[in-house]
């Protein structure tokens, strides 16, 4: 991205690009200032990406040769041209990393109409249930109320290396009705499976020589404490 390429875009495209990059620009700003703000944002973005540590995917981007359409593309956040849902009652969960999972769900129109017609219906909520309980970790569940128009959330999960499932419920007065049940997912570990005490000196040295520090991986502690978030039912 450079000034020449930005100058080739319409003012609407520049504003759309600014929106996409999270810039809150005053309306009817002079073109030159919009371009300047975008260049600064691109520079910051580039520095952040370089500093993010793992270059493999940044390098991979290079094989997809660019064109000036990339900027125009970036300015058009078009809605997908396919149906956004399948009118079914379902909940899916995908573990993304040791801390976060992506959950998406849907409620069939008929079922939702029936719920809305029930005066006791107050909300939909997700119940996140921890299934497997390795030594030193605690079982339990927590609930997240979701909006009627929501259909996806990123959920922070309290423990790495644990299995969870997510249930979709409707709250009806003091009762809850189970609508859908996800498959079980397991969050990957962020800490080594073994503590340093369990490794002999050679194995510990080889782990260090393999880049433990640069990958910011820590060994498992001697006594692995449970990390419990507020709202987690014990």
């Amino acid at each position: 991205m450079n000034v020449e390429r930005l100058n080739g875009l319409s003012i609407d495209a520049l504003y759309a690009l600014a929106d996409k990059m999270g810039l809150d620009l005053p309306i009817e700003l002079e073109r030159v200032f919009v371009v300047e703000a975008l260049l600064e944002a691109f520079e910051e973005d580039s520095e952040e990406r370089k500093a993010s540590g793992d270059a493999a995917v940044h390098i991979e981007e290079k094989k997809y040769s660019g064109s000036e359409l990339d900027e125009i593309d970036a300015s058009l956040d078009a809605a997908p041209c396919i149906e956004s849902r399948y009118n079914e009652t379902v909940v899916h969960v995908i573990a993304r990393d040791p801390e976060w999972a992506f959950v998406f769900w849907d409620v069939k129109d008929d079922a939702f109409d029936e719920l809305r017609a029930n005066p006791a219906f107050s909300c939909l909520f997700l119940r996140v249930v921890k299934e497997s309980v390795p030594e030193g970790k605690t079982a339990g569940s927590f609930e997240v109320v979701v909006g009627e128009d929501d259909d996806r959330w990123y959920l922070h999960l309290p423990d790495e290396g644990c299995s969870y499932h997510v249930d979709l419920y409707a709250r009806l007065g003091n009762r809850s009705r189970l609508l859908a049940h996800s498959a079980v997912v397991r969050t990957p570990r962020a800490l080594m499976a073994d503590s340093l005490a369990k490794l002999d000196a050679d194995a510990a040295t080889l782990a260090t020589l393999s880049g433990l520090a640069s990958l910011e991986i820590a060994p498992a502690p001697e006594h692995h404490p449970s990390r419990i978030l507020g709202g987690f039912d014990e």
């Binding site: 570990r189 050679d202 080889l206 260090t208 393999s210």
Partner: peptide
């Protein structure tokens, strides 16, 4: 990946070597 191996169960005894 190195990360995947070092986080493996059990921890590899030869590192990435």
């Amino acid at each position: 990946s190195t990360r995947g191996a070092l986080l493996g169960d059990p921890t590899p005894r030869m590192g990435s070597y």
